[in-house]
Design a protein around this nucleic acid. Sequence first.
DNA 1: GTCTATAATGAGATAGAC
DNA 2: GTCTATCTCATTATAGAC
Lengths: 222, 222
Amino acid sequence: MGANAQIKERANQQRSLETKNKILNAAEELFSLHGFYGTSLRDISALSGVRMSLCYYHFGSKEDVLQAVVDRRADAHQQALLEPLNAYKEQFGDQPIPVDALIEAYARPIMERHLSCGNGWRNYTRLMAHLYSESAHLEPKVQVHKYDPVIKQFFAEFRRSMPHANEPELHWAIYFLRSSVINMLLDTQLVDDQSAGLCDSGDLAQVITRLKSFFSKGLQEP
Amino acid sequence: MGANAQIKERANQQRSLETKNKILNAAEELFSLHGFYGTSLRDISALSGVRMSLCYYHFGSKEDVLQAVVDRRADAHQQALLEPLNAYKEQFGDQPIPVDALIEAYARPIMERHLSCGNGWRNYTRLMAHLYSESAHLEPKVQVHKYDPVIKQFFAEFRRSMPHANEPELHWAIYFLRSSVINMLLDTQLVDDQSAGLCDSGDLAQVITRLKSFFSKGLQEP
DNA sequence: GTCTATAATGAGATAGAC
DNA sequence: GTCTATCTCATTATAGAC
């Protein structure tokens, strides 16, 4: 292969990547807003400005597009979730990590991406939440549940910080925390509406403060 | 109109009602499992055993079927939610109702219908939860949010029971409670999976106990 | 009220020229 | 890699006989 051909191939790969990302960005937004079945490849094509046939060329099928959307940010998101946890582990060593620090370590990376890292991350986190209710019908075609190991690690740390709590009670408490975070990711405006605007689910600092103060009360030792 | 004609008309109305309910039952189940867009009228027709054209005759459109499903149990559900609250109001009179009683008054009617009143109610409550994430795309064609006044009444009672709590904090706490209940209605098995079966989200007594003990801790006066 | 048949639209997916 | 054109199928919805 000549030098010219190599340059051409590089340019093509670059353009291919850009096209793929245009598709994924549009799909991410629409899937997260209207669900998998509420979104057609025509919608994605229209929003992305990329011809429909290219979606098939690059991904194969609608389900494959969803899978690609899910996969694109999965590793980065997992890393972001574990980073503060590991930092705390290092900081506290053998000592247990305080409960409110654990709550923040869990909630902040998620809510931060949802609220202050741009539309891409906002759509991605919303989609992840949305998929919890759609996944039953989507699997096994699409692999969605990628964060179970992360939850396991968080549970282990909560356990260490609350040695006297009984196991089921602790599981329920962490589940309630997860439910609340997941619900916020859906952007249902439930708390904003309920409080007639007094509470702002779009305010990261407020969200983290409220999560910490409420759930650390529930997660105290008896 | 002769007596014979009247009898015939009665029988027809009866049959008509049965057909409608067959359709609504199937729609309730499928919408609640796969969402509005994940369900076709063909699916509903197949599951109910009623011809597709009859769905149009009785309701008009797919959206109208959803609306009818939502409406069918709405009043009964509202009543069921307010009944224990009003009973407590009567019982305690001017005294504030204890917080854990309020939590139970809110959660039990919902979770009871979800877990121990048969498949119809189970599907209905699951659908209501599901619609929180789909409603943005469905409105204004379908009117879904029918429980805001109920929440208002509950908030007022929580307020009375916790006169020193600040308003936003109270709103957030009640919102976290609602999130957890809503998530359980979706039957995602999150807590069952997370705890490897140690916790059972299908056990009504367990669910109520855990909700009360956890959320009453978070809802204490400072 | 119920049935069959069918219209009309939109969906996912593919073929083949460039 | 990109485009146009098209296929095939499922969907919502309607018309008209009984």
